[in-house]
């Protein structure tokens, strides 16, 4: 895949300009954390990135956008829909194949969901829902992870473990976060958005906690 480049563009959400005069370059291989107060434009930026590389994207939106009535198995499998033919997908919907059960099952055990595989998503806790959404993104096996607060409902330790697992499976990643600590320890680069523009853009190694607090004022 090629790099993402924004040169003085404005990103809109409906009629509102969320990020104006955006200058940004994201290179293949980078693991980028997006920080900023809510409403700063993290989601808008992620959606713009996804639109540019739809087929390369492992997508994990903030509203998990899962299908509540279907099982964890089917929701994770949805990440792979595009890899298989329509008939195979429909048959797998009616009766999961042994192969898919094995593959999805392996991933689910890494995510701590193995005993929930046959449970529908509307019966899960918030943390389990997030892990399912991450599972769907992982199962799509795309090089670029775009995730919007994917671990916000998990406790700190679980969140870090899952974040590291997910990052290790993707070549490039842009992840919106609200926990600053995770941004500094798990990522190469931190971009801070606030007041409609990029306020901070630096390698994670050069930043300290207090560099980040300005963003939220």
């Amino acid at each position: 895949m090629s790099a993402f480049r924004f040169r003085g563009e404005t990103l809109w959400r409906g009629p509102t300009a969320v990020l104006s005069d955006l200058h940004l370059e994201l290179n293949p291989g980078e693991k980028v954390a997006l920080l900023g107060p809510s409403g700063a434009g993290k989601t808008t930026l992620l959606e713009a990135l996804r639109a540019r590389a739809l087929r390369d994207t492992a997508w994990c939106p903030q509203n998990p956008a899962l299908v509540p009535a279907l099982s964890v198995f089917h929701n994770i499998y949805m990440g792979a829909l595009e890899r298989y033919g329509t008939l195979y997908n429909l048959l797998n919907l009616i009766r999961p194949t042994a192969y898919q059960q094995r593959q999805v099952g392996e991933l689910a055990s890494e995510l701590g969901l193995v005993d929930k595989l046959r449970v529908s998503v509307d019966r899960l806790s918030g943390g389990q829902v997030q892990r399912t959404a991450l599972g769907r993104a992982l199962y799509s096996e795309r090089p670029v992870l775009l995730a919007d607060e994917p671990v916000s409902s998990l406790d700190e330790e679980q969140a870090r473990a899952l974040l590291q697992l997910t990052l290790s499976r993707h070549d490039t990643a842009v992840v919106a976060l609200h926990q600053q600590e995770q941004a500094l320890t798990c990522f190469d680069r931190v971009i801070g958005l606030a007041r409609g523009c990029v306020q901070l853009d630096a390698p994670a190694g050069q930043l300290r906690r207090h560099d980040l607090t300005d963003l939220y004022q």
């Binding site: 087929r55 492992a58 949805m78 829909l81 595009e82 329509t86 919907l93 769907r136």
Partner: peptide, 16 residues
């Protein structure tokens, strides 16, 4: 909308 890019419409309808 959250399904992977390129998923065909029939599959999208029946799964999501």
């Amino acid at each position: 909308e959250a399904l992977p890019g390129g998923t065909n419409p029939v599959t999208t309808f029946f799964t999501a």
